[in-house]
Nucleic acid binder design. Sequence first.
DNA 1: AATGAATGAGTTTTCATTCAT
DNA 2: AATGAATGAAAACTCATTCAT
Lengths: 204, 204, 204, 204
Amino acid sequence: MGSTDKKHPDQERALHRRKQILEAAECCFSRSGFHGASMAEISKAAGMSAGHIYNYFDGKDAIIAAFVQANVERVSAKILGMAQRDDPLQAAYDDIERSVREDIKPGIWKMPLEIFAEASRNPMVAELVQEADRHTRAEFRKLLRAGREKRGMASDDATLDGRIEIMVAFFQGLHVRSVHNPSMNMDSTVAAMRLALWPLLFNE
Amino acid sequence: MGSTDKKHPDQERALHRRKQILEAAECCFSRSGFHGASMAEISKAAGMSAGHIYNYFDGKDAIIAAFVQANVERVSAKILGMAQRDDPLQAAYDDIERSVREDIKPGIWKMPLEIFAEASRNPMVAELVQEADRHTRAEFRKLLRAGREKRGMASDDATLDGRIEIMVAFFQGLHVRSVHNPSMNMDSTVAAMRLALWPLLFNE
Amino acid sequence: MGSTDKKHPDQERALHRRKQILEAAECCFSRSGFHGASMAEISKAAGMSAGHIYNYFDGKDAIIAAFVQANVERVSAKILGMAQRDDPLQAAYDDIERSVREDIKPGIWKMPLEIFAEASRNPMVAELVQEADRHTRAEFRKLLRAGREKRGMASDDATLDGRIEIMVAFFQGLHVRSVHNPSMNMDSTVAAMRLALWPLLFNE
Amino acid sequence: MGSTDKKHPDQERALHRRKQILEAAECCFSRSGFHGASMAEISKAAGMSAGHIYNYFDGKDAIIAAFVQANVERVSAKILGMAQRDDPLQAAYDDIERSVREDIKPGIWKMPLEIFAEASRNPMVAELVQEADRHTRAEFRKLLRAGREKRGMASDDATLDGRIEIMVAFFQGLHVRSVHNPSMNMDSTVAAMRLALWPLLFNE
DNA sequence: AATGAATGAGTTTTCATTCAT
DNA sequence: AATGAATGAAAACTCATTCAT
């Protein structure tokens, strides 16, 4: 649908070109934002003419959409990765430090912020992130329910959903914190994070 | 500095004009984002000519800066308001429901998201939000320390800062949640919020 | 409707500007055609920046539409002028020579040809010329009927409409002839025209 | 000259390819006009790659020229066909109804209008249609002279040329009428046509 | 103090054409 | 003979900003 359906006999090359463009876009978007980055800028970064990009994407909006799509998939992948672990809940708790350090790594949090803002006014992007979020929450709920039932704890839908909401809010909030407080103290933040997540995961 | 120093004989009127412009900008920015809103749009909303705006602001960037400034001050004011209460910590905890409902009210969370994104690439805006955040954290720390000392609890700087970081992340993360999950279940979210905030506020 | 409704406090100036643009457009359109003429070309000919044109017209299509409108009105005006005459039919017949000479004057027939072609694919332009044509035929029919009734001749609608169709075809066909045969012999053409028009006007 | 001189070992195939392209072009040109149709569109319709077209034509202009050429030849063929008839003049008169119906058939008149417009600004195309017109007029003149002399009527060049001019104007004007009045009444138009053509053909 | 006419640089996008394969 | 990836120039249009009034 949308932009993958252009006819390119050499699919291999086409895929590579698209990747090239999206990587160039990442760099430009992160530097100047979706609307500040021009097609000329992107094409230069991608090492091809501006016109040629239109052989792979319908337009700038399609690039933004594909880019957002790729980014939300990255988040989904994380959750799915967690599901592989032995005791996913415990694993998540143990991984807090790594997660936090990852989330506030410079260069990591810029694109999410841009995507959030774009989703707040571009319906196409909104639908993309909301759909991905639905999926992520569903996966997360499965994990949470399984983990809690194993421990013999209540797990009605509403309760789980509320806790998931807050846990995700925290991690997404961390991106926001990064831009507000670049010199955040990592250790005490991680400690506080543990304190807050524990009851969300393991309290009745 | 910047935009307040233009010479206007009638300072009263000038201030009013600036307020007019910023209010018009709010409406346009919220609809179209900082970069999607045009000066023409703003000037029409403000009920004055485009040219005239330049008598009060150096340019669009100056409007954005002033607008961001006004918005971050609104957040600071909230904290200061809390400080007036008898037992600020308990008050904050009791107010969770109202705060959450306020944060995800449609039309409330759009501007913050826009500001976060802008701060991530516009150094002037970044400096603004970081400075305001420093101030907010400092005020919050005073409140938190006072509340905890009254209760005879430890309150070294690092611990407090970590917990503040997480608490603020929660609330800012809620704005982000709004765009990801428009049909969030309020009650269970508030319940989970309480569960998470309690230890942050009152645990050793 | 369309392009006249832009708010220009100084209506006088605005009207003059629009006229300037349409005159410049005439020159460019006639030289390069509707699609061959660029906004840059037009703006240069109009003596203003390309961007400024958009303060007076919604876009190139609006210019084309206004231009076509002005041109079809010119044709209507001719018919109306004829109606003023004492015996319009005789006058029309007597004026044949002048009409023919006018129609094939270089620089006169180019725009009609362009308009005809444009109308054949641009529905907006088609509607414009068809509406004008309906009006012109109606006026012409009134004239023709009055003239013939005065002479005691039959004048049922169908007959009149057929003759009008052919008479108009002649005159519009003359524009076409101009591009096919630039060295047309005027005198014999006028004579032939008289021969053909006479029965159309005055036969039973 | 121009486009026929490309060296193609298999001339048969080359000719077929050119025909393929011109037929594809007909469809595209008629839908979008000479300038609205893109080479990509044409190449897709022709079932070959865009690049390959350049092995048969020097460029888009060459396609337009060849296309126009083919179209004007079609008109010439009509006249030549008429010459085969027993009494060509009478035949022409008797065929009026068929000719009219043919001329205003939807899909028939679009290309002529496009060609007329193009000829009015593209000198190469102008030369093409003028040359073809010279030829057509010459043939027509021969027919007309023969028919009239057989009937013992005067037929000096100037008179004949004037009448031919008007007769052709009428038929070409019909194309123009089609776009102005899509709901033209056929029967009365044919009747009027007969009325007008008779004296042109058969009067002194 | 206030206007809005005017500019010009910059935006996205299209397309005829070329050329390595 | 044939492809289609690639280019680059040009198109329509937008908009922050200036300035004469």
